[in-house]
């Protein structure tokens, strides 16, 4: 095989990206679990771990820039590396949202929930599975998998709309619940953003495979 070094480097890049993706997925699950279980210690851990994700983003970014400068990749190699550069930005934002959710958990530390949390954990499950599916699509270079994942975004959006409706109604009926209700709305919004970032990753996978940019978020 010619250009073995570059091929090896692309495999390493992919593995680092997957490691970062796994950490982000863990962060999201942990953040929502900390919220539902009112586990402040876990929420603090999530906030701390965000630095690690930032570091991973910078490491992968440096790796990509080095490859661009020294290997001067073209065609699909170029697309693989530029896609990695975009994906890490989306992953890093998701981790930020996990930390945002953890911060809400700490604010609500001493309050009883105004309603049982059902839809939020469900929405979070969907969103974090989108993250995993997006990275699988990247590894498999699969447009089909990317599209399948992107379709889940509709379910997330529906849940978000339902949560929004419920919480607004609750706040209208019980003004004393407005504070917590608003925080929970933020949480739902963060999760919705996570799903959008997963959709972005799917779009980048489609670009990587086909060379064409498709905008799926609306």
């Amino acid at each position: 095989m010619i250009r073995q070094y570059l091929s090896d480097q692309l495999v390493e890049l992919e593995q680092e990206l997957l490691r970062m993706g796994a950490v982000v997925e863990d962060q999201l699950r942990a953040a929502v679990r900390a919220l539902t279980e009112k586990n402040s210690a876990l929420a603090r851990e999530v906030i701390q771990e965000d630095d690690r994700v930032d570091q991973m983003e910078m490491d992968i970014e440096r790796r990509c820039l080095t490859l661009l400068a020294l290997q001067q990749p073209l065609a699909s190699d170029l697309r693989i590396i530029s896609t990695a550069l975009k994906i890490i930005t989306d992953l890093e934002r998701m981790a930020d949202h996990a930390a945002d959710i953890a911060k809400v958990t700490l604010r609500l530390e001493n309050e009883a929930f105004i309603k049982p949390l059902v839809d939020i954990p469900e929405m979070a499950r969907l969103a974090s599975s989108m993250v995993r599916l997006a990275l699988n699509a990247y590894v498999h270079r699969s447009i089909d998998e990317a599209y399948t994942m992107i379709r889940l975004d509709d379910d997330v959006d529906h849940l978000y709309a339902a949560i929004f409706r419920d919480l607004i109604e609750l706040i209208r009926d019980r003004p004393d619940a407005a504070g917590q209700g608003t925080h929970l709305l933020f949480v739902a919004n963060y999760i919705e953003r996570v799903a959008d970032h997963a959709t972005n990753i799917g779009e980048w996978v489609i670009f990587m495979v086909t060379g064409e940019r498709k905008e799926m978020n609306d």
Binding site: I2, R3, L6, S7, P73, L74, A75, S76, D77
Partner: peptide
Amino acid sequence: TEQYLTGR
């Protein structure tokens, strides 16, 4: 073309 450009 792809193979040529990627040096493979």
